[in-house]
Amino acid sequence: MILTIARKEIKSMFLSPLAWVILAVIQAILGYMFLAQIENFFILQPQLIQLENTPGVTDIIVAPIFSLAAIILLMIMPLVTMRILAEEKKNKTINLLFSAPISISQLVLGKFLGLLFFIIILTSLLMLMPLSLLLGTALDLGKLFSIYIAMLLLLGSFAAIGMYLSSLTDNQTIAAVSTFGALLMLWIIDWVSDSLGQGQGVVSYLSLLKHHQTLLEGVFKSTDIAYYLLIMILFIGLTIRQLDSDRLQH
C-alpha cells in the first residue's frame, strides 16, 4: 500500500517538467564546479606531492562539490516537496486517499518514500561525476560511500521538513517559502554559536549542515546518523498528526 502511493508519487513528479528541470539544473551547476575543481587539483598537484600525508583526490575534488551540492539543494528541495500534500489539498484529491482503506501513517510514509526515491535518483546521478574519475585514478571508495549516505540523510531530512510544511497549507508557494526559511534557519543556526558562550553546544548541535560536514570527511559517527534519523521521524510524525487533525477541523 505504501509502495502504491510512493510509485504514484514518483510518476507524478516525473510527469511534470519540474523534476526534470531540477535534475538538469543541479547537474549543470555541479558539473561546472566539478570541472573547476579538477582544474584546481592540477594546479595544486606539484605542491601536494611535496607534502607528507597529503589529502587525496576524493578529499580535494569530491568533498567540496558535495558540500556545495548540499547548499544548492537546500534551496531546491523546497520546490520538490512543496506540492507533495499541498497540491492534493488544493485539488481535493486528498479525499480519495482519506476515503480509501489506508491509514494516515501509510499515506504519509508512502509520500515520504516517493520523495526518497527522487532523492536516490538525484544523488546517484551526482555520484556518477566522481565515479567517472575512476577511469583515470584510484578513489577512496569508502569515503565516497560515506558521502553518498551523508547526502541521502541530509536530503531525507530536508524532505521530511518540507513534507510537514506542505501538509500545513493548500498553497504550494507558501509551502516552498516556509520550507526554505526553515532549512535556512537550521543551516545558519550555528553561525551565532561562537558568541553565545553557554548554550553553544545545543545550538550548534541543531545545525543541519554541521553534522553533514563530518560525514563528508568520511567520519561515520552514529550521533550524526541518529540526528538525521530523528529529524526525519519527528517530521513524519508531525505530518501524520497534522493530517489527522485536518479531518477534525477542516
Binding site: 507524478s12 484529491t93 480519495l96 489506508i102
Partner: peptide, 25 residues
Amino acid sequence: YLPENPPVYRELTVDEYLTYCARLH
C-alpha cells in the same frame, strides 16, 4: 465515494488513474 469535486489527478491518463485507485483499494 465520489466527492463533490471528482478527485482526479489531471496529469494521469484515465487508465493510470483507475489502476491507482484499484490498487489503493
